[in-house]
Nucleic acid binder design. Structure first.
Lengths: 203, 203
DNA sequence: CTCAAGACTTACCAAATGGTAGAAAAATCG
DNA sequence: CGATTTTTCTACCATTTGGTAAGTCTTGAG
């Protein structure tokens, strides 16, 4: 018998995979259990209900996402281009863990049962990012704009990237790294033009 | 008794609404029927199966989408900015019929049972757009790039718009027209810089 | 008026779904 | 080892699901 939280981790991983591809409603606990060579009741023992499993997967994913971005947000080497750092690290997450973005996409859907929880879970990260941006604005390193707006736009672009990767795969385009890089550039230049103070704009 | 295709139309409309919000798997024929004050078997009578209903909704939506873009693609007043026309009309569809974009989003998901059909349905529109772009390239009005790539990028941006609108609503942002306009501007400038021939670039 | 075709309904059903109850096995610890 | 707790399983169950079969009702043509 698997000691410690090993089984739990396995369930979480497979659940993320399933939720982010075939969706929450499309995932059946029986199928999930079979894929893990486990009985359904083991899943329910660890997570109480299907909804509980979704919440756990969500919490876990947001935690990982937060960890990936935390270091960039807290790093204080202000001389480097931090916007570029931020965009770069977000895109790294998107490319390395497309499932995670797929989950966000699935869950941020209007009718999703987990939308409120996603909002709650993401808000610390969001406020942190907004606080950072406003600090930058205060010091004059960043133009005064609606931080929340810019953030959401950037967010949806990244989630869109994950979508795009799948669309490209469907359409038969094999290499996905090139368009990803292109899109990153697009986002970066958008952020630059909307954030760089006017007097510093040389581009 | 409703003559002509009235009932059929009603079913299609509600199905689009349901599929694009709570998803295909999340939609039950019973609920759909109840919402229409109809018996489930009436739905099955018209569309044979749930999958058949999805296909019908898909065909219908792609048809509407195609009609919206057809006129722009066929219009031959080459002196005006046709890229702007195209982007504008696509965004008009996105804002007026967010459900349609929601459906695309739902259906272009990796595990979706309708992904292949979507590809088939969309490909005429896609090839038409690509042909148009290549024609423009040939005549020198457009820079030589990978037309398919640009198209897919633009496509995912538009679908992302629908997503963004919902995210903004979830986050409590009321006015969604401003970010939509902003994003349209973003897409437009992206397309301009990547499509305008170098010798003509004055921006 | 008749009658065939179309539209819609009632009656059912097998399979799948999320979930409960409680036994059995395994791990932990004194 | 023995007792207790944690983990996993077998056995069920109520409900929902998409779908079939067979009617009833409506309409329109001859």
């Amino acid at each position: 018998m698997a000691p410690r939280g090993e089984t739990k981790e396995r369930i979480l991983a497979k659940a993320l995979e399933s939720f982010s591809t075939i969706g929450y409603d499309g995932t059946s606990l029986d199928d999930l259990a079979e894929a893990l060579d486990i009985r359904k009741q083991t899943i329910l023992y660890h997570f109480v209900s299907k909804r509980g499993l979704l919440n756990a997967v969500l919490d876990d994913s947001v935690k990982k996402l937060t960890e990936s971005l935390e270091e960039v947000l807290t790093s204080t080497n202000s001389n480097r281009d931090r916007i570029e750092d931020l965009v770069r690290s977000v895109f790294r997450v998107a490319l390395e863990q497309p499932l995670l973005l797929g989950l966000l996409r699935e869950v941020s859907r209007p009718g999703s049962p987990a939308a409120p929880r996603l909002k709650t879970q993401m808000s610390p990260l969001m406020s942190r990012a907004i606080a950072w941006m406003e600090e930058e604005m205060e010091s004059g390193r960043m133009r005064r704009t609606d931080a929340q707006l810019v953030l959401l736009s950037a967010y949806s672009t990244v989630v869109g990237l994950a979508t795009e990767i799948e669309i490209l795969r469907t359409a038969g385009v094999e290499r996905v790294l090139r368009p990803a890089a292109q899109r990153r550039q697009e986002l970066l230049s958008f952020l630059r033009t909307s954030l760089t103070p006017l007097e510093k704009q040389t581009i």
